[in-house]
Design a protein around this nucleic acid. Structure first.
Length: 525
DNA sequence: AAAAAAT
């Protein structure tokens, strides 16, 4: 279905066309008509399939610009996401003259109050700042007709729920409520439904929860070897842009430092950094002034950054839902991507929990050796140098390598110069600076209920336990079969060949020799 | 058990 087949006004369609959108995605096709009718909708679809436009377009359509009232409210889990959604809504509503404001913590409330006073039809905000503005009577919600929870399952989660309830209690009961997310656990959906009237749950049916545009890999690696393993893989993969997710803010700081030492253009983003820095880092990453964004889960959800080809889960995500969102930062809008999740031997149980949620097996991957990484880097540098030498401006390019460049350039052949530049560009793997990432206390493992804790409580304990045992036995069976058929093995070799032109088998790591493919949970005996 | 979110 095409956008111009929706019952949308000409000024919206003009902006849609300007943005180059023609064909609506399935979630858009199914939710836009419902939302235009005024129905309450839960919209669930894979990451990167255009959920913002799905709730944004019908919302914009219904705004009466001649009235200077706030008619729609969007609540988002992070400040960056609030900014991004505001920008997208503004873009589509531009011709129509819709005023969209974003409000969030960490930046001047005075400015935001002024902006609200200058007129707003749609407000996009994070919970804390919204409540603050409501208390100061700078934000009136009595004219709201559409309420949207972006990343709805996160907004209705513990930690946010109380604030959300407080905000919703100020919004008129007679309203339309839209909930959107890629993930929607049943327990959370039940909470959400309480704020809605006869909601339609549009769930784009897919075998897997994650998009098939992302190739999902995991590497089983000891904690102490993780950093080297990741940087080598990055050298081999040569991502355009990549995001590295760490478990804690401190960890993100360490990883950022380490990656910088290794020569990557990397910056970190997490909740302890001041808001200017957070926005600056994100902007630099989008502009291509950075190659690697190192992040906590603050960047896991919603952020739409084109050019992200690789997501590295340096630490395995805390919640299986977080995994779905993290890897959804790549493989967006029809483009493909890769995710690589690093799993230490005692975390293999988490891998299983994630796979249970996504209904998708990650492929095992062998670490690349230092030599392989070095060769890969060298190839890339050589290509770049060759390109430079083909260019007329080779001398100006060469000059940055030293005072005598002009002299050297006249005395040596292009090949000799190339070798010289290469030696300056690519470091020998043995001389790489050492980086140590502090070991954190291991994740607590709670096998109950299939989640990472917090679920399965209440009167169903016995059932949960039986389910769990059954699931576990199934898992073991599947894995053993895989091992016999060698399908997993084949996956590994298929990937290895990318790294090994000589087809030699990379050496086994000791941990793999030890445990093969058997899953070891703490709960298992 | 961590991160996010107001100051």
């Amino acid at each position: 279905m095409k956008f111009n087949e929706f019952n949308l006004s000409a000024d919206l369609l003009a902006e849609i066309e300007k943005a180059g959108f023609v064909e609506a995605s399935p979630i858009q096709e199914q939710t836009i008509p419902l939302a235009l009718e005024g129905k309450d909708v839960i919209g669930q679809a894979q990451t990167g399939t255009g959920k913002t436009a799905a709730f944004g377009l019908p919302t914009l359509e219904k705004i009466r610009t001649e009235e200077a009232t706030i008619q729609a409210l969007v609540i988002a889990p992070t400040r960056e996401l609030a900014v991004q959604s505001q920008e997208e809504l503004f873009r589509f509503g531009r011709s129509k003259g819709v005023k969209v404001r974003s409000v969030y913590g960490g930046s001047s409330i005075e400015k935001q109050i002024k902006a609200l006073k200058s007129g707003a039809h749609i407000v996009v905000g994070t919970p804390g700042r919204l409540l603050d503005l409501i208390k100061r009577k700078a934000l009136k919600l009595q004219d709201i007709e559409t309420l949207i929870l972006d990343e709805a399952d996160e907004m209705l989660n513990m930690g946010f729920l109380e604030d959300i309830e407080a905000i919703i209690s100020r919004v008129p009961e007679n309203r339309q409520t839209l909930l959107f997310s890629a993930t929607m656990p049943d327990a959370i959906k039940r909470i959400g439904v309480q704020f809605m009237k006869e909601p339609e749950h549009v769930k784009i049916a897919a075998k897997e929860l994650t998009t098939e545009l992302v190739d999902q890999y995991y590497i089983r690696v000891k904690e102490q070897e993780k950093f080297d393993t990741m940087t080598r893989l990055m050298d081999v993969d040569q991502p355009e842009l990549s995001i590295v997710f760490g478990r804690t803010k401190r960890r993100v700081d360490e990883l950022t430092r380490g990656l910088k030492i290794r020569g990557f253009r990397a910056e970190g983003i997490h909740g302890d950094l001041d808001q200017n820095k957070r926005l600056r880092v994100l902007r630099d990453f989008k502009n291509g002034n950075l190659d690697v964004l190192v992040a906590t889960d603050v960047a896991a959800r919603g952020l739409d950054i084109s050019g992200v080809t690789h997501v590295y889960n340096y630490d395995i995500p805390q919640d299986p839902e977080s995994y779905v969102h993290r890897i959804g930062r790549t493989g967006r809008a029809g483009k493909s991507g890769q995710s690589i999740t690093f799993v230490s031997p005692n975390e293999m149980g988490y891998l299983q929990i994630i796979e249970n949620l996504t209904k998708k097996r990650m492929k095992g991957l062998k670490p690349a050796s230092a030599e392989e990484a070095f060769q890969a880097k060298k190839q890339v540098a050589l290509k770049k140098i060759e390109r430079d030498f083909a260019n007329e401006e080779i001398r100006s390019n060469f000059e940055k390598f030293g005072k005598d460049a002009r002299q050297l350039a006249s005395e040596f052949s292009p090949e000799e110069l190339a070798m010289y530049i290469l030696s300056l560009t690519v470091q020998d793997p043995d001389s790489l600076p050492e980086v140590e990432i502090a070991r954190e206390k291991p994740l607590p493992f709670k096998p109950s209920g299939g989640g990472f804790g917090g679920k399965g409580k209440g009167g169903r304990r016995g059932d949960d336990r039986r389910d769990r045992d059954r699931r576990r036995d199934n898992r073991r069976g599947e894995r053993r079969d895989d091992f016999k058929k060698g399908s997993r093995k084949n996956d590994r070799f298929e990937k290895e060949n990318r790294y090994r032109k000589d087809n030699k088998k990379p050496r086994n790591t000791s941990s793999e020799k030890k445990t093969g493919f058997v899953i070891r949970n703490k709960g298992d005996k």
